[in-house]
Amino acid sequence: MSEQVVMRVEPDEAQARWRRYRWQLLYGEAFDPAMQMALDEVLTRRVGIGQRLPTLRFWEWTAPAVVIGRFQSLRNEVDQEMARQHDITVVRRITGGGAMLTEPGKVITYSIYAPPELVAGMSFVESYAFLDTWVIEALRSLGIDAWYQPINDITSAEGKIGGAAQARRFGAVLHHVTMAYDISPQKVVQVLRIGREKLSDKGIRSAERRVAPLRQQTNLPRETITERMLEVFATRHGLEEGRLQPEEIAEAEELVRTKFGTYEWTAILP
């Protein structure tokens, strides 16, 4: 195991790196939970081999889901019976981190697929905050008092807004974030098992109080928030309209069949 060598990267120099790329935007099309997982792998691979320009993808969901982290135990994180009752699909993503509940129109989820050079010289912890700097700016410009809580939380005085997860794989960096917009904290604790040890250093008593969805903090419609996010990204880094290629969709569909849609993958850590 290696001790991580971290070079000093000046924040302004690093932020200027975004401008080295022609960022493509994928926005609007909704997919089911397993397909979302598969698209993340396919698009990361494509950026890794240079078949796709660096990309920002905003997700729309066709169905509610619990998404668990690559290294989580299925039965320890999810009340599967409760998930069934609520008609919630359980899927596993390729990044680490914690389980989350998503519902169509009730979360804001996005992925960044980037060349590793964008975060060269940064530790993992530094790169999380770096890749979401534009999001914090967008939220703050809407009057939401948000900040980055290392390692991977977007939080506020009222509670946690969302979490990021990252993988450095297939020659690229995948960084994705889900923020709660209108998720019911009560439902979260019904479906997800959140143990006492996990809250041990958070200084709060209950898991319900941990989550502070954006709608609770602002009266703005979800679209207003995502539009502001796009504006800020475009202004800071540049952004072009992109689209998913048919072969990318086909490749993702195949991955749903062989991996993300299978119980073997979801229960890889039972």
């Binding site: 982290g69 290294f71 989580q72 680490g96 981190g97 390692i151 794989r169």
Partner: peptide, 15 residues
Amino acid sequence: VQVTGDFFLEPPEAL
């Protein structure tokens, strides 16, 4: 032995 959690690990096979 099974090791699980909400940590991050690269590469994942190192688990």
